[in-house]
Computed example of a mutant assay.
Amino acid sequence: MSDKISIAIVSDGKYGHRAYEVIKKKFYCKYIVLDYKGYFEDIRIEEETLKKLKNFDILITYLRNPDLTYTLLEEINTQENLDKNLFIIIGIWKGEGFKRQMERFKNVVCPDLLCNLDEKYLRGKLEYYPQLREFLRHFGKPMVNIYLDNNNIIRNIEIIRDSPCGAVSKTLQEFFGEKMEKDTLRRIGLRVQHFCNAGKFKLFSEKECKRIKAGQILLEGINLQKC
Rank of each mutant, 00 (worst) to 15 (best):
E96N: 13
L218E: 03
I88Q: 07
P130L: 06
Y128I: 15
D162C: 06
K54E: 14
M143G: 09
G221P: 03
G97Q: 15
T78P: 04
T69Q: 12
Y36G: 02
K51Q: 12
S169R: 11
W93P: 02
I153N: 08
M180S: 07
R187P: 06
E41H: 13
Y15E: 08
C209D: 15
N65I: 02
N116R: 12
Q79E: 13
E103G: 05
F176L: 15
I212Y: 12
P66S: 03
E46F: 14
N55Q: 11
K125S: 06
N65M: 07
I90C: 08
L53T: 04
K4H: 09
T71G: 06
G13R: 01
H138T: 10
V168Q: 00
F201R: 08
C110R: 05
F139D: 00
I32Y: 01
L34Q: 01
K25D: 11
K210E: 12
E178R: 12
A8Y: 05
I76N: 05
G221K: 01
P111R: 02
I92N: 07
K94V: 09
C209E: 15
K30Q: 13
L114G: 05
K30I: 07
L126A: 01
T184F: 09
Y70M: 14
N55I: 03
Y121P: 08
E208F: 08
H194L: 15
H138P: 00
E127G: 08
E96K: 14
K170L: 13
K210H: 11
G16A: 04
K99F: 06
A19L: 11
K37A: 11
K106P: 04
I5R: 02
G221A: 03
Q131L: 00
R137E: 15
T78E: 09
L224K: 00
I154E: 03
E119G: 09
D149E: 01
M143V: 15
K120G: 10
C209L: 15
D162Q: 06
N107C: 07
